[in-house]
Each structure stands twice: as C-alpha cells, then as structure tokens.
Simulated scan of single mutants.
Amino acid sequence: MIRHVLVEQGAPKVGTAYEDKALDQLFETYQKERSEYFVLLEGDEILGSAGISPLDNGDPEICELQKMYFDPSARGRGLGRQMMQKCLDFAKDQGFQVCYIETLLSMTAAQKLYQKTGFEYISERMGDTGHYSCTIFMKKELN
C-alpha cells in the first residue's frame, strides 16, 4: 500500500520511503523499544498506516512520525487526523518531547494535515532518516 501511494503521488523512488528496506519488514522494524506501527483496516483491506519511532541519530526525546500513507479511498474521511492523534498519543506515552516529520514538497495535503495538528516548518533536517529527496521538515512540541 505504501509503495502504491508513493507511485500514485509521483514521489521519487530513491531518497524516499519507497526504497526503505523496512517496508519489507515492518513488523520486525517496529519491535524496537518506544516504537509502534498502526494499520487502519476496513474489512481485510489496508486503508492507511503510520508509525512512531525514535529519530535515528537524534536526541532520545525526539521521535519521528514515519510512513504515514493512506489509500485514495480513505482520504477526506478524517482518518488521517485520527491516525495522527493515535500516533501522537503513543509518542507522549513513551515520553517523547518532540515529534519530527519530513515529506515531499508536492505532498501539500499531508502538509496541511500536519499543520492542523500543530506541526511547524523548520529549516533543517533532523536525525538521519536517509530520505534525502524529502525537502520539507516539520516538528511538533508534544508537551
């Protein structure tokens, strides 16, 4: 589903989540401490997903909202906002103080959702996500 959405959005296949090895091992990837991956199902169909994990090579009080994607059939139904809240609640429960996300310039709908939930643009990348094609960086204070 994630790769399908990235293709649908015209995202580059390099320097984005598209090439993450973790996509083929999501269960194993999110077994580490202070990490969780949420999947939205409608019947047996995956409509969306998102994860929270400590930011790689970052401050231990900073988490990253990762791999938040929704099938076109799920958009415009408030599901993204609900998923975002689930992820941020988990992050707070894990003691994170800041949540970071990066995205593509072309993903304006996602940016609007992030802004509505309190994320603000920042000028520089945080941590080491490996997503060098993502040029939009945002963070939210969780206190």
Score class of each variant (00 low, 15 high):
M1P: 01
M1G: 02
R3M: 04
R3W: 07
E8N: 12
A11I: 07
K13S: 08
V14Q: 14
T16F: 08
T16G: 05
A17Y: 05
D20S: 10
A22D: 15
L23I: 08
L23P: 03
D24G: 13
L26V: 10
E28N: 04
T29Y: 13
Y30K: 09
Q31F: 04
R34W: 02
S35P: 09
Y37T: 01
Y37R: 02
V39S: 01
L40W: 01
E42I: 00
D44E: 13
I46M: 00
G48I: 07
S53I: 08
N57H: 12
G58S: 09
D59V: 01
E61I: 03
E64R: 12
L65M: 13
Q66H: 02
Q66W: 01
K67H: 03
M68G: 01
F70H: 02
D71R: 03
P72Q: 08
P72N: 11
S73L: 07
G76H: 05
G76K: 09
G78I: 05
L79S: 02
G80N: 11
R81V: 11
Q82S: 12
Q82L: 15
Q82V: 14
Q85R: 15
F90K: 08
F90E: 07
A91F: 10
G95E: 04
V98W: 11
C99K: 05
I101T: 15
T103A: 09
S106L: 14
Q111P: 08
K112M: 02
L113I: 14
Y114D: 07
K116D: 15
T117V: 15
T117C: 13
T117R: 11
Y121D: 06
I122K: 13
S123A: 15
T129F: 01
G130H: 09
H131G: 00
F137S: 01
E141C: 05
E141T: 08
L142E: 02
